[in-house]
């Protein structure tokens, strides 16, 4: 089993080795995004006080982590459709879960590379050290990575369900989540009726925890635990949804048709 996961992972290693564009992409968007937000927060810091910079930049770095993790999972599977390779994969003795694990592995590596490089940039350019979040940072990282996998699985499921037309969701879904999950502002800024929705997302606890950690050096344990519990639920739901849509695709014969129109 792990040999096959490794094989599928290797496929993406080769891809990044071959494709300069693909490799640059890991850096390009996050860097531009960081620079933009870095300057914005610097300016806001001038207006509102120095704490602003750290909250905003912390939010940007952690948000990107979630975004990239989700992206890597959904893109790596969609890619097989684009490449007309999906039938080769499903005609091989591969379990869907192996494909998913490889995709999550890709998400992990891409997110790790991205976070480490972002951390350097924000430190060098804006003097913000993400290590200021303290030991909770490791937990934040893990939580967002896992939530990204779960959202990635949901996204893939939706693409299986609605076909290629839904590919835009890979980019669209994060924008649905972003305003709700209190990346740049605390949950209590949201209107009362939206707050329960925000509290359903495990990532919300991470961003709340991040602000606490930046203010006091540690995040309250209950926030971390809630993030973990939420992630467990979302990961299971995402996996079940993905498996269900995959089965539907096999019934519809769309896996092999690939057009998925």
């Amino acid at each position: 089993m792990w040999l096959r996961v490794w094989a599928l992972f290797l496929r993406y290693v080769y891809l990044h080795k071959r494709s300069v564009v693909r490799t640059m992409e890991i850096f390009f968007w996050p860097v531009m995004n960081l620079l933009l937000w870095g300057f914005v927060s610097k300016y806001l810091g001038r207006l509102a006080g120095p704490g602003t910079v750290t909250y905003l930049l912390g939010g940007v770095v952690l948000w990107d982590l979630l975004y990239r993790s989700q992206h890597a999972v959904s893109l790596s599977i969609t890619e097989e459709f684009w490449e007309r390779n999906i039938v080769n994969l499903f005609a091989a003795p591969v379990r869907p879960v192996e494909i998913v694990l490889a995709a999550c592995g890709v998400g992990f590596v891409r997110a790790l590379v991205m976070t480490v490089s972002s951390a350097f940039i924000v430190y060098a350019a804006f003097g913000f050290n993400i290590l200021a979040m303290g030991p909770s940072l490791g937990w934040f990282y893990l939580s967002l990575l896992v939530f990204g996998w779960a959202v990635g699985l949901f996204t893939m499921g939706l693409i299986f369900l609605f076909g290629r037309a839904a590919e835009g969701l890979i980019w669209g879904i994060p924008f649905l989540i972003q305003p709700l999950t209190a990346v740049f502002y605390p949950v209590d800024v949201l209107p009362a009726w939206l707050q329960p929705v925000a509290l359903c997302l495990p990532s919300t606890y991470v961003f709340e925890g991040m602000r606490a950690a930046l203010a006091h050096g540690t995040a309250p344990l209950d926030l971390l635990l809630r993030a973990a519990a939420g992630n467990g639920v979302f990961l299971v739901l995402g996996g079940v949804f993905f498996a269900w849509t995959l089965e539907r695709v096999r019934v519809k014969g769309a896996l092999a048709r690939q057009a998925m129109e």
Binding site: R11, Y14, L15, R18, S19, E80, E83, N85
Partner: peptide, 10 residues
């Protein structure tokens, strides 16, 4: 004839 291996790998 209608299935391919990934085009950007050797």
């Amino acid at each position: 004839a209608y299935v391919a291996m990934p085009s950007n790998l050797t």
